[in-house]
Design a protein around this nucleic acid. Structure first.
Lengths: 241, 241
DNA sequence: CGTTAATTTGAGACCATTCAATTTCGGTGG
DNA sequence: CCACCGAAATTGAATGGTCTCAAATTAACG
């Protein structure tokens, strides 16, 4: 986050899974980027759009989302700083879902042509990109399990465990305080619930002393308890390294 | 299916998304494979396992699956003949979910080392592999929408639309008859429902003249009606080409 | 400091679940 | 070829988790 270079955090993330040579790293950091700020609730990517750039989140939060014809929607993932929000649009070209900002955020736009060129020249980076999208897919699979087979309480506990851990991995947790600018309605769209029931369920998690969550600040009070409540097993995040 | 070479169908599938040269194709068909039959309900891959081979389905059906600690499970996808069931285990190495056969099936085992080597030498095939896993992820995302935001009737209609269309794409539909050896309990695990409610909901789809489905044979009687019932938009399959 | 968004609360309705029993089907052995 | 068996499909009734619809309260923001 406090890196000199905006892509340094990405290099660090990828080097957890792939050995990057200095040459790889230099080539990665040499990617041409355009910094672009987005307001809250702005569209970074629109479903059906032909993408020319990929978006790397430098600061703030975003979410992937699909809308139904009747207006309801399902959130597919939450993206945090240092993550690509749409790397899959490199090879696929046309976006099959939308991406919106969760708060005011800043993005690095990278031309797809340059990304694919980088992948062509650097085997390690190419592998890192593939793995990046594969981990992404693993997380969506776990969300499917969450929504398909867990009750409301477990769904929310699981989601909060995941976000806390992923934010921890990128060093975004300070003194146990986690900035999480997400509304209960959005949590509901992540978990396939209604906002009302999300509210009541969060209250139950609070009442049991598992979390403290107000004003977009989350504090996990009982990590073991929250893990159990969410039937949480972090292996799907593929971050053990 | 009636191809001379067991990997010919894969070459055909991939060439929908990537231009394959004769050299690419030859290299792909030169992959060393071991044919292996599996009984019904057998494990092709176990969660947590370190994979040495990837499994390509030559004949029959399989499904990806994750179990909860209490024994319930969520099916993550249905795999049909000509598809890889675990290509993601190439780069990721350790399986984050299990794969089981749905019926008696036959698999081509391909050593991961050979797959990665092929990817390293052939840019087009490497892209095809990446795209293969990306489409896979797109389908799981749509399943998440299905389970998270549609009611039982729409979920089942959507699932049947998807399977019918994917099987159509590989030429597995004859005279409108679709072989689909899946139980109602497994359909329930795909859609996050119970077997009992799946049964009642299928009856309602039958009663409305949308489908005929018995003994593992599906016939779509009213394609438009089933599409509408499932709020089905096939673009997520990325098969338009 | 007003105005809108977000959270919270209550009560009733409904979709889906649970539990249990029954029927049908597919495969098997006599 | 028929009797048998276990698996799968079907049915019924009661329960319950989640939703819907409102309204009230609180927090966020310019």
């Amino acid at each position: 986050m406090t890196d000199i270079h905006p892509l340094a955090a990405l290099a660090r993330r990828w080097s957890r899974h792939v050995e990057l040579t200095p040459r790889d790293r230099d080539a990665l950091l040499a990617l041409p980027i355009t910094r672009k700020p987005f307001a809250k609730d702005a569209y970074l990517v629109r479903q059906g759009q032909q993408a020319t750039d990929c978006c790397l989140l430098l600061r703030g939060f975003a979410f992937r989302q699909k809308s139904l014809s009747d207006g309801r929607r399902q959130i597919l993932s939450i993206q945090i700083a240092t993550e690509f929000v749409d790397l899959q649009n490199g090879p696929l070209r046309v976006a099959d879902h939308s991406v919106q900002s969760l708060d005011r955020c800043e993005v690095a736009l990278i031309p797809i042509a340059d990304i694919l060129d980088l992948a062509a020249r650097h085997p390690n980076l190419r592998t890192a990109m593939w793995i990046d999208t594969l981990i992404d897919a693993s997380i969506v699979r776990e969300w499917l399990v969450n929504v398909g087979r867990r009750d409301a309480r477990a769904r929310l506990a699981h989601l909060l465990c995941e976000l806390a851990l992923r934010l921890e991995h990128v060093g975004a947790v300070r003194d146990g305080l986690i900035t999480l600018p997400i509304t209960q309605e959005q949590l509901a769209d992540c978990t396939g619930l209604t906002a009302v029931h999300t509210n009541r369920t969060l209250q139950s998690l609070r009442r049991d002393g598992l979390i403290h969550f107000t004003n977009g600040i989350l504090r996990v009070l009982d990590w073991t308890g929250l893990r159990e409540a969410g039937d949480f097993d972090e292996r799907y995040l593929h971050q053990q390294a």
